[in-house]
Write a protein that binds this DNA or RNA. Structure first.
Lengths: 223, 223
DNA sequence: GTCGACCTGATTGTTGACAATATGCTTGAC
DNA sequence: GTCAAGCATATTGTCAACAATCAGGTCGAC
């Protein structure tokens, strides 16, 4: 049964999502070397599939591909994380503005529901739920604003931030700090106030940048 | 001599840049089907190289890859072009703001020089030069602002716009319209006024959006 | 005359073997 | 003891043949 290797397009997906997952969960750390044969064994995929998956990940900026030297998980420095967050601020500001202009009543209801559950999650100290709601919120704002292009760019940027976001979420008091900012975004969007929505989104990410700045930069190196 | 096929990494580049070039020059049109064997013959590359190059282009959003059906040049609808330009506005606004804060005296000098030459090019009716200066200006602003991440996102977005930018540039009176906007950006950045710089950049791209909106949408379809 | 099944040619997908290259170790000289 | 050269091994890169699939056309039945 260990003989059934996943092949082709399927294999490519298995390896790609597998590595992404491993990155999120911390099973793979930045700087780590990725050897085609090993991945091929781990995921029961052919080397071709692994190769293609690595190309995909490199295109997403998650993996660094050095010719004749192989692949390693890309190290995102604190400085780069800040730049990424600055871009996110610009793009989420756009999405929030458009969402305030275009959100349907259904969107607004969903947003309000997320706000309520966020409040509850923070009160309960339930970090996992809060973080899931967080992602859901950002997704929904892009969707409500009809910004597919911005959404795909944001997905890409968020993917590169996993490591740093992981660190930030662990900081004591961080949820209590970000909750009111999230609520302000929801409030402005449901109120249909584009300027306030954009400002709220930017303010939120500016605060993330301040947190990143307060990061000891010994994270830059290898892993 | 026609026997010397370009191989491997080199081939991948040849094919990739070849197709990009063909796109810019209009030799390949959106919707057009790309057949691996044909490309392989045209560029004297192996089919492997062609395949990898197509993957690259698909990751950049220039080509659409349908499993078992092959590759075609992606059609960017007017609606999507507008979304792309909205994202550009957000990101270039960010770059312009930072450039106003961070530009070195050397940067400022170069910017002023570009402004002068742009004025001249428009006066001379030299569209090619103006368009080259245009690209140079946008590049320089991202660089002066130290926004590498934003710059790479903008490159990507601009790549997808080639077709539409081509159309816009041909409109009579378009350069005369965009010139003062470009000059305003340069002015604000060299004056070190971040707010004005961001506003100028956004205004410029808002005007592009207005032009796109005035596009007959019969461009959406195939080719 | 129209519809559907089948067949054929064109095109993409997959594989495994082979080639090229880098890395780290061993050996020997100084 | 240290350094350099050479060798062995691990790893990635390339290719060409083969397999799978799709599009379009042909033939026959109704």
């Amino acid at each position: 049964m260990a003989e059934n290797r996943v092949t082709g397009q399927a294999g490519r997906n298995v390896v790609g999502t597998g590595i992404r997952q491993a990155l999120r969960s911390g099973d793979m750390v930045p700087g780590q070397r990725l050897i085609e044969q090993e991945l091929s064994d781990t995921f029961h995929a052919t080397r071709s599939s692994v190769r293609e998956a690595l190309q995909d990940l490199a295109a997403e900026g998650l993996v660094e591909l050095i010719p004749r030297r192989g692949a390693r998980i890309r190290v995102v420095s604190v400085d780069e994380a800040i730049q990424i967050t600055e871009c996110r601020a610009a793009l989420e500001g756009l999405c929030a503005r458009r969402a305030a202009e275009l959100a349907t009543p259904a969107h607004r209801d969903t947003l309000i529901g997320i706000g309520t559950r966020m409040r509850q999650a923070v009160a309960d100290g339930d970090l996992d739920t809060y973080s899931a709601l967080n992602r859901r919120l950002h997704d929904l704002i892009a969707e409500a604003g009809g910004q597919k292009v911005a959404q795909s760019l944001l997905d890409r940027l968020n993917g590169q931030m996993v490591r740093h976001q992981f660190r930030l979420a662990l900081r004591p008091g961080r949820p209590a700090q970000s909750l009111p900012q999230h609520l302000a975004m929801i409030e402005a969007i449901t109120a249909g106030d584009p300027d306030a929505a954009e400002t709220a989104a930017r303010d939120h990410l500016d605060s993330v940048i301040r947190e990143l700045r307060a990061t000891p930069d010994r994270d830059n190196g290898e892993g």
